[in-house]
């Protein structure tokens, strides 16, 4: 399998890339820090990925760079079977309310620019007779909650887009896999209080890889979060109004 990963230097993307490396998939990495990209590529090769693991700079804040980054990946891998987007930004509700610049950045990265990246991947994969586009959204997009109003809104929009893309393009061979991680212990969530059912990034990545291999349109990782969100989606509004989670 030939896989392009956006955001594999950290967190769940790192774990997922390692699982792919161990089974010998050919990998190409996009990211915004050259040192991290290089260290991640070396790690993946040491874990069994076929050498070389190519890298190119790509920052989700700068949509103008997407085309050349995707060109580099398509050229190096001679076509791509799977694109995985785990990159994204997180901010607590307080931080996002307090800082307009940060707020605009998070909303742009998690919603508009991630969608723009997918829109540029779509024609490439359709021209290649299809493939799998796997994007990490969040359970925060499933239901509005006080702690994730802004972040959740961006992820809700992203989730709806990905659902729609799958409706449109699956017949033509482009399978969209929407991953909704629950609380996963990574550097991104390090400052938050840990809720029940928190999982490690490796566990989440194993579930995500199963979804990619099967082409599951929507997958909660780890799967127990499907149940948790089912309950949260059915909570009456007055409960969400009175509680603070």
């Amino acid at each position: 399998m030939k896989v392009l990963l956006v955001g594999a230097t950290r967190g769940m993307g790192r774990s997922l890339a390692r699982l792919m490396a161990e089974r010998g998939d050919r990998l190409f990495l996009l990211g915004r820090d050259p040192d991290s990209l290089e260290a991640t590529a070396a790690d993946l090769i040491a874990r069994g990925a076929p050498s070389p693991v190519g890298t190119a700079l790509c920052d989700l804040e700068q949509s103008s760079g997407f085309e050349s980054a995707l060109d580099a990946a398509w050229l190096a891998l001679e076509g791509v079977d799977v694109v995985v987007v785990t990159a994204g930004l997180f901010g607590t509700q307080e931080a996002l309310e307090a800082d307009a610049e940060f707020r605009q950045k998070v909303l742009a990265v998690d919603f508009a620019n991630t969608i723009e990246l997918c829109e540029q991947v779509r024609p490439r994969m359709l021209a290649d007779e299809g493939g799998t586009l796997c994007v990490f959204s969040s359970v925060a997009g499933d239901r509005a909650r006080k702690k994730v109003v802004l972040y959740g809104a961006a992820k809700a929009g992203l989730s709806r887009y990905l659902e729609g893309l799958d409706l449109t393009c699956r017949e033509d061979g482009l399978r969209t896999v929407l991953i909704k991680p629950g609380f996963v212990r990574t550097d991104m969530t390090a400052e938050l209080d840990e809720p029940p059912f928190a999982a490690g990034p490796d566990e989440a990545a194993r579930a995500a890889l199963r979804a990619i291999d099967r082409g599951t349109p929507v997958a909660y990782v780890p799967p127990v979060w499907g149940l948790v969100m089912l309950i949260i989606r059915w909570l009456p509004t007055w409960v969400l109004r009175r509680t603070n989670f």
């Binding site: 260290a39 991640t40 070396a42 790690d43 090769i45 040491a46 874990r47 212990r185 990574t186 550097d187």
Partner: peptide, 9 residues
């Protein structure tokens, strides 16, 4: 425990 990259083999 989260710092678990291999540098080279």
């Amino acid at each position: 425990t989260a710092a678990d990259r291999l540098r080279w083999f």
